[in-house]
C-alpha cells in the first residue's frame, strides 16, 4: 500500500481564483478611491512644497536647517540681491514646545482617562466626556487668547518656581530674565489643546481592556489600582503612545495659538522659560503676509521641512506602537 502511495505523483498546487460579484466590485472601487485619494492629496502637497521650495533649498543647502537668520535684501527694482534663510531656531522651538506640551498633557490625559473609565460615576462620566470632546473641537485661536490674557500674567510665578527648584537642569535655566512669551507658555497652551485628543484615544483603548483579565485580577484579591496596573495599562500602553504621538503631531503643526503667545526670535533657544523662540508654522504665518515671491519660496521650503518632520514623527510613533503592541494584548 505504502509503495503505491510513494510512486504516485505529487500534483502541483492548483491556481485558486475567485470571481467577485458585481456589488463587490463596486464597493471595492468606492473604497479604493477613498483610500487612494487621501494618499494622492498628501503626495500632491509634498510635490507642491518641494517644487516651490526647491530653489531656496538648493541655494541654502544644509544651512537651511542649521543656521538661524532670516534676511532678504532687494534692490530698488525689487530684485533679490542677498538673502539668508535658516530655520534652526524655529525647528528647535517646534520640537521644544511640542515636547513640553506632550510631557504635560500625557499624564493628565492618562489619569483622566483612567478616572473616566474606572472611577467616575456614570452621570459625571457623561458630562466630562461631552466637555472633553467639545474641547477637542475648540478653535485654537481661543486657546491662544486664553494663553495670552490669562496664562501669561500668572506664568511668571510658576516660571520662577521652576527655575528656583529645577534651575540646575539646562532646560530650566533662566538667563537673561524674560519669562513671558516663552516656549513654556506655548507648551502649556499646546498641552491644553492636545489633552482632549490623548484623553479620547486613551479612554477608548482602556475601555477595551479584556473583561476576563480584569476579573482574573480582581479574583486574585487585587485592588482597583492594582488591577489597572496589571491589566489595563499593559493593554493600553501602545494605544496611549499612539494617542500621544497624534497629540505631538498636532502640537508641532499648531500655528495660531503659538503665534499668539510666543516671541518669534531667530535665535536657537533650549531654555524653555526664556522668552525667545518660535515654531515653523508661526514663522510662516508671521512672514507670509508681506513676503516677496522669493521669500515665499523660502517659506514653502520651511513648510516642506515641517511636513517631513511630522511624517518622521508619525513613522516613529508607528514603530513604537508596533514594538510595544505585542506584549499586553
Amino acid at each position: 500500500m505504502s509503495t503505491i502511495a510513494a510512486e504516485r505523483q505529487v500534483p502541483a498546487p492548483r491556481v485558486l481564483t475567485t470571481q467577485p460579484r458585481f456589488s463587490d466590485k463596486v464597493f471595492r472601487a468606492v473604497v479604493t478611491t477613498g483610500g487612494l485619494s487621501s494618499l494622492i492629496i498628501l503626495g500632491l502637497i509634498a510635490i507642491f512644497l518641494s517644487y516651490r521650495g526647491f530653489e531656496v533649498l538648493r541655494q541654502e543647502g544644509f544651512h537651511f536647517l542649521t543656521s538661524s537668520d532670516w534676511s532678504i535684501t532687494t534692490d530698488d527694482a525689487g530684485n533679490v540681491t542677498e538673502s539668508h534663510f535658516g530655520i534652526a531656531a524655529m525647528l528647535v522651538g517646534t520640537i521644544l514646545c511640542s515636547i513640553i506640551a506632550v510631557v504635560i498633557a500625557l499624564p493628565v490625559s492618562v489619569f483622566s482617562a483612567l478616572f473616566l473609565n474606572f472611577y467616575a460615576p456614570a452621570w459625571l462620566k457623561k458630562i466630562l466626556v461631552a466637555v472633553i470632546d467639545m474641547m477637542a473641537a475648540f478653535p485654537s485661536i481661543l486657546f491662544g487668547i486664553w494663553g495670552f490674557l490669562v496664562l501669561m500674567p500668572s506664568v511668571e510665578y510658576w516660571a520662577k518656581l521652576l527655575n528656583k527648584y529645577l534651575g540646575f537642569l539646562p532646560f530650566f535655566k533662566l538667563h537673561p530674565y524674560v519669562v513671558t512669551r516663552s516656549p513654556f507658555v506655548a507648551g502649556v497652551v499646546l498641552a491644553i489643546m492636545i489633552i482632549p485628543i490623548i484623553t479620547s484615544v486613551s479612554r477608548e483603548i482602556f475601555s477595551q481592556a479584556p473583561l476576563d483579565r480584569i476579573q482574573a485580577a480582581y479574583a486574585l484579591g487585587a485592588t482597583r489600582w492594582a488591577m489597572i496596573k496589571a491589566v489595563v495599562i499593559p493593554h493600553g500602553r501602545s494605544g496611549v503612545i499612539g494617542g500621544a504621538m497624534l497629540g505631538l503631531g498636532r502640537a508641532m503643526g499648531e500655528t495660531v495659538a503659538v503665534f499668539t503667545v510666543l516671541n518669534i526670535v531667530f535665535q536657537v533657544n533650549w531654555q524653555m522659560l526664556l522668552g525667545v523662540g518660535g515654531n515653523v508654522a508661526s514663522l510662516i504665518i508671521l512672514k507670509f503676509g508681506e513676503a516677496s515671491p522669493y521669500e515665499i519660496k523660502a517659506l514653502m521650503a520651511a513648510g516642506l521641512v515641517l511636513f517631513l518632520l511630522t511624517l518622521v514623527v508619525n513613522a516613529l510613533a508607528d514603530l513604537i506602537v508596533r514594538s510595544t503592541g505585542k506584549s499586553g494584548r
Partner: peptide, 17 residues
C-alpha cells in the same frame, strides 16, 4: 477573594507577564 480563589471558564493568564 484571597481566601476564596477562582478559576474561570476561559483561560485568562496575563499576557504581559
Amino acid at each position: 477573594r484571597l481566601q476564596i480563589g477562582m478559576v474561570f471558564q476561559k483561560p485568562n493568564p496575563f499576557p504581559s507577564m
